[in-house]
Design a protein around this nucleic acid. Structure first.
Lengths: 345, 345
DNA sequence: GTGAAAGCGCTAACAT
DNA sequence: ATGTTAGCGCTTTCAC
């Protein structure tokens, strides 16, 4: 079973010949550019359909655009990120742009490789979701190609940003737990030391928001932050540490749903129950959180909105590379579920 | 804060001038092609480093390759697929190839759009994971560009395939449950009517394997297949139907972990317990299944192996487009966890 | 409004 | 082993 020989691709020249016009004319029709009469447009369109012509993106990119948008997700396994992606693809659905995802971007090195690859492929715009790279790297990317950074704070003239107000999100959780009568509310955060990241990364903002909210509720003395990482294992380790305390917290605010998963695992393992022995709240409102038997109270970041806004800013900037950079901040909401409950007397 | 002006990209001409050689020489070094002395290679490499030159993939693609591989996943939310992707990226890590993911491919229309987009962008190879498109579409893709279809059976001269033996996987589950004393073992499948898909799609094979295994264990009379869909909601609906039976099954084999999630939800809602009242097994061994408090017995498809094999076949075919198509079948394994238990007397 | 011609950055075919 | 040249498929001047 030898494979059939691939037939030659239809080019703009074929279309031009078939429609009896110049290649320039075809190009104008393709781009809806000025300088083609309605009759010409119709003629060309017909030829395109008849021949099944599709423009070659690489060749287009050599002079104009590739109509390709690159999206970099830090972790495809985190169920929050697909939400953002949905917002992105939905916004681009009716355009000629096509979205491609750069995979497996955990760490600065992988991020650099993927972003460089996107630039090398002449992508028209890049959306970076929660990148961990240095400011300098991000600006390099933003200078080379229109870029929007999602889920990371800190403004730059070289790229636009869209993020949720993480301080507000943390305050929602603390407020919710305090209203349920909790006072010993602990927080598990992602450990961070780099000064730039401390001011720009969502995890640092959430820890900040937690501290501030505890203070505002007069719970300063119960402030209790465990530094691990935004992974299930980090949540597990953090919870183990908390459960070993002489005076245990009655509620835990995990900085991400995935962290809350680790907490739930540790709690189950210790023979304790949620929310009976411990109220648990997460962040991101992932499918995990929504899953009935788990039913985790969480903060909803409106991922689709993030994605939609990112596309809007990106298209604006593709249209006008000289415009000033913009920052969009959205507000999160709290989704209360069964993993948090009123403190038993 | 106006953005800084993007500086002109370094081209092969710049490198050639800087190294005082021809562009051909540079091109040869880039491609490790024959016809460049060690001294020349060194000179060119130095110039490349000094200028920070990176080849433009689009331009390369116009004559040669783009060094880009496209991967299409049907559902980024299904935690099984990232495993395959890991196998793919790991295999390509040390090559010049870059992987990009086509997003959100649920349905034939979306699949067509994404695959066309990949072809338009001159991708050197395409990996389609569990595509739902018609045979004709797949062959069209395979004819246009080297293609490997993962997780779908049925061979074609136009593309290679890598899949797990789903019949065997189903047999593992039935055997496991039968060994635990279960006889009333029900199966929830993804409804399928199209004849091609009935023979090629994994879900159909699993249902088939279930029926065959039941027969082989002398449990034919208890064969009980519920047709819904491979979604959480499908699992929920299926479980509701099973729980309403006069004679309830004592075990359920869900065709996918996501389906098992729906089953667990329905069981919890009915005030029943797993595995006390019902043993539940899934398929895919996702992170969901491995999650401690859920601890779902499941079939492991060795996603990384699938990905690795797909890459191997793809690179072979890129090197020799005329070679005969190959089919690789891997064996799944069973991961027994706490959601299945010996039948109480 | 229309088309001829140049050129984007690279590779392949062909000299030398 | 090295360089010269043509051309990949498209967009962009710039004539008309």
């Amino acid at each position: 079973m030898e494979p059939p020989a691939p037939r030659r691709r239809v080019t703009i020249v074929d279309v031009a010949r078939h429609a009896q016009v110049s290649t320039t004319a075809v190009s104008k029709v393709l781009r809806n550019a000025y300088g083609a009469s309605p009759e010409m447009r119709a003629k060309v369109r017909r030829a395109i359909d008849e021949l099944g012509y599709r423009p070659h993106a690489g060749a287009r990119g050599l002079r104009g655009q590739t109509y390709t948008i690159g999206v970099m997700l830090p972790d495809i396994r985190n169920p929050f990120f697909p939400e953002i992606l949905d917002g992105v693809t939905a916004s681009l659905e009716d355009t000629e742009y096509q979205v491609f995802l750069g995979p497996g971007c955990n760490g600065e090195k992988a991020e650099a490789r993927v972003t460089e690859a996107m630039i090398d492929r002449g992508m028209d715009g890049i959306i970076l979701v929660a990148p961990v790279s240095s400011r300098a790297r991000l600006e390099r990317v933003g200078t080379a190609v229109p870029t929007v950074v999602v889920g990371r704070h800190g403004s730059s003239p070289s790229y636009d940003t869209v993020a949720d107000d993480d301080v507000e999100g943390a305050a929602l959780v603390v407020g919710h737990l305090a209203a349920l009568g909790h006072r010993r509310i602990a927080h598990i955060e992602h450990h961070e030391t780099d000064p730039t990241r401390l001011s720009e990364m969502p995890n640092a903002r959430r820890a900040d928001g937690y501290r501030r909210a505890m203070r505002e509720h007069g719970l300063e003395e119960w402030t209790d932050v465990i530094s691990t990482s935004y992974t299930q294992e980090g949540g597990y380790r953090g919870a183990r540490e908390l459960l070993d305390r002489q005076v245990r917290p009655t509620a835990v605010f995990a900085g991400a749903d995935i962290v809350a998963m680790g907490v739930l695992e540790a709690v189950a393992e210790a023979g304790l129950s949620v929310p009976g022995d411990l109220s648990v709240a997460g962040y991101d409102n992932t499918t995990f959180a929504a899953f009935g038997p788990i039913s985790l109270t969480s903060v909803d970041q409106a991922g689709r909105e993030l994605g939609r806004n990112a596309v809007r800013l990106l298209l604006e900037r593709i249209a006008d590379r000289g415009r000033r950079s913009a920052q969009v901040i959205l507000s999160p909401t709290l989704v209360a579920r069964r993993s948090t409950a009123r403190l038993a007397e």
